[in-house]
Amino acid sequence: MHAPLLVSWLLVALCAASGAYCVLRARSRTPERRATARGEALMGFGMAAMAVPAAVIAPPGWVWTAYAAVFATGALAAGGAMALRRGGPGHHLHHLLGMLAMVYMAWVMAAAPAGHAGMSGMAGMGAERAAGSPAVTGLLLLYFAGYVLWAGARLMPGTLTAGAGSAGTSGGPGPVRGVRWGDRPELALACRLSMGTAMLAMLLTL
Rank of each mutant, 00 (worst) to 15 (best):
A3P: 11
L10W: 02
L11Q: 04
V12F: 02
R33I: 07
A35M: 10
T36W: 10
G46F: 07
A48Y: 08
P59Q: 02
W62H: 06
T65E: 15
T65A: 14
Y67D: 12
F71I: 02
A72V: 02
G79T: 01
G79Q: 00
G87E: 00
G88Q: 14
G88E: 13
H91T: 13
L96S: 06
G98V: 06
M99H: 09
A101Y: 13
M105S: 06
W107P: 03
W107R: 04
V108W: 01
A111H: 10
A112C: 01
G115A: 04
M125F: 14
G126F: 03
E128F: 14
G132M: 00
P134F: 08
V136Q: 04
T137R: 14
Y143L: 12
F144I: 08
G146S: 13
V148K: 08
L149C: 07
R154M: 02
T161I: 13
G163P: 02
G165F: 08
T169L: 11
P173C: 10
R177H: 13
G178T: 03
V179W: 02
R180K: 11
R180T: 14
A188G: 11
A188M: 04
R192Y: 15
L193K: 05
L193H: 08
M195S: 06
G196I: 01
A198F: 08
A198W: 08
A201L: 10
M202T: 05
L204Y: 13
L204D: 05
